[in-house]
Design a protein around this nucleic acid. Structure first.
Length: 511
RNA sequence: GGCGGCGUAGCUCAGCGGUAGAGCAGGGGAAUCAUAAUCCCUUGGUCGGUGGUUCAAAUCCGCCCGCCGCUACCA
């Protein structure tokens, strides 16, 4: 039986349009999903949209639509974005689906049955204009004595009935989780923040609202809808078929990795495991969080007008180069800068010059000097062995890096092979061997074919289309394009297709 | 305010007790198979400041300066 792997993105809130941050999360998770498929796993990759809450209801009203109609529209846009980025999701969940309503109702019942939900009142200083509660400490008092929010909006003390989740009861269990499973939260810096947050003491959580209706009804409590995060987080088990233990996908739970942005770590690393503990369900194995992209050093914002629409990037630079750039440019957990010069440099230097040109020069020599037939293996020199051994070690190197979600290091491992292969071809100079030692020339070109094949196979997770084209040119059969397939030695003498550049150089013609 | 992190070559960063490293950028050279791509060599740093521990400190400790993150229920 194949080992299983379950990776998720957050479900995206349909309040706004997809931007580069959403694409980044989805692409990172996609690389993990594709890599595990290459590595022989039975993979479940889940993404989707979060569609409830007051903000969606209001955005819909502003657009002159009903909330469902509005959510349908935005959800479809997110899905289109995922498709255009090459995101290979296995399921696209929406919180407005009946399966999710059923799942949430059951989760609620279980948590309640275990005694972790109790009725009470949610109260605090509320600003209607901000649609938010404010802490006493952040309020200011106006001249006439009214209390004001930091935004300057007036606040009023409101009190509404609400159910509470006994989060406080899970403090020790959560700390034990972080202790016994140190990689539960990555990167480590984020883990420490969560630990110190939980150590500081947990208050119970208000998990229902009566002030709006666009949400999942609380079972047996007319007028209450579930707190949006309880609704949203539960999507991860809904998609596995919860609460049906016989559902075909139930075998995937618990998830291996929840990929999230750094802003929602707490919800995933504190609330979510607490909800699951309360319901008596197994916990996910990891929450892996990433940092933000800034544009030319500035934060992306609508007011600055520098929001990057991922589909526009793809149109301009190509899908695979964009995927490559996003995972190569910065450490996953860190913030980083996206800019035209940086994209241009990565794409031209690393993809076109180093990798693309390596394939092109190797394949051209084969086309020209061997009639386009795949060369046969030679006796093999120490230098051949050194390069081939380094390439053979690549899958394991990638595995180790991707298991920790250090994508940039994974790519660096691959590029060490790319650079070594360029050095090798220069040193061996097959173009000179053509006259002096044709047999050796053939052996050298074969080494390059084999090395390119490992590279293209391993990089398929990052750049599925481009690496597919490279594997086409190497004549690798479809059934041998995963890591297990690397054991299949390519036959000598097969006629290869004429070489075509995989990564065209970008010409600097626009700012 | 509290807790935590960071500050190393022009840039991005690795090193985290034993006489400073990588990639890019800069300089020189080689080659010419290839998308004028590639390869080789190379300039460059008082490792934020300051005290201390040690035979020995980017590397451990104290203090100072600067930057950043977290400090609950707005996805």
């Amino acid at each position: 039986m194949k080992p299983r792997f379950y990776v998720s993105t957050p479900i995206y809130y349909v309040n706004g349009a997809p931007h580069i941050g959403h694409a980044y999360t989805s692409i990172a998770a996609d690389v993990l999903a594709r890599f595990k498929r290459l590595d022989g796993y039975d993979v479940f990759y889940l993404t989707g949209t979060d569609e409830h809450g007051q903000k969606v209801a209001r955005a819909a009203a502003e657009a002159g639509l009903g909330p469902q109609e509005f959510a349908d529209r935005v959800s479809a846009d997110f899905r289109d974005m995922a498709d255009k980025m090459g995101v290979s999701y296995d399921d696209y969940i929406r919180t407005t689906e009946p399966r999710h309503h059923r799942s949430c109702a059951e989760l609620w019942r279980r948590i309640a049955a275990n005694g972790h939900i109790y009725p009470g009142h949610y109260e605090g200083w509320y600003s209607v204009r901000d649609e938010a509660f404010h802490d006493e400490a952040e309020l200011t008092t106006a001249a006439d004595g009214t209390k004001l929010a930091p935004s300057g909006a007036p606040v009023a003390w409101v009190r509404e009935p609400s159910f509470f989740f006994r989060l406080s009861a899970f403090q020790d269990k959560l700390l034990e989780l972080y202790e016994t499973q140190p990689d539960f939260i990555l990167p480590a810096g984020r883990r420490n923040e969560v630990v110190s947050f939980v150590r500081g003491g947990l208050r119970d959580l208000s998990v229902s609202r009566t002030s709006f209706t666009w949400g999942i009804p609380v079972p047996d409590a007319p007028g209450h809808v579930m707190y949006v995060w309880l609704d949203a987080l539960n999507n991860y088990v809904t998609a596995c078929g919860f609460p049906d233990p016989e559902a075909p996908r139930w075998k995937f739970w618990p998830a291996d990795v929840h990929v999230v942005g750094k802003d929602i770590i707490r919800f995933h690393a504190v609330y979510w495991p607490a909800f699951l503990m309360a319901a008596g369900l197994p916990l996910p194995r990891r929450v892996s969080s990433h940092g933000w992209w800034t544009v030319e050093g500035e934060k992306m914002s609508k007011s600055l007008g520098n929001v990057i629409e991922p589909r526009a990037l793809v149109t301009r630079y190509g899908r695979d180069p964009v995927r490559y750039f996003l995972l190569r440019q910065k450490p996953f957990g860190d913030d980083g800068t996206i800019s035209h010069p940086a994209l241009l440099s990565r794409i031209n230097v690393e993809l076109a010059n180093e990798l693309g040109n390596l394939a092109q020069r190797s394949l051209s020599l084969i086309a020209r000097n061997l009639g386009g037939r795949r060369p046969g293996r030679g006796a093999g020199t120490a230098e051949d062995a050194e390069l081939l051994d380094a390439a053979a070690a690549l899958p394991e190197a990638l595995r180790e890096r991707l298991d920790r979600q250090v994508f940039n290091e994974a790519l660096e491992e691959a590029w060490k092979i790319v650079r070594a292969a360029n050095a090798y071809i220069d040193r061996q100079a097959p173009w000179a061997l053509r006259k002096t030692d044709p047999a050796r020339m053939e052996a050298v070109l074969r080494v390059l074919v084999d090395v390119l094949r490992v590279l293209a196979t391993g990089l398929t997770a990052f750049m599925p289309d481009a690496m597919g084209r490279m594997l086409d040119q190497l004549g690798v059969p479809a059934e041998a394009r995963d890591f297990a397939g690397l054991a299949t030695i390519l036959a000598d003498g097969e006629v290869l297709p004429p070489p075509v550049g995989v990564f065209p150089r970008l010409v600097e013609d626009e700012a």
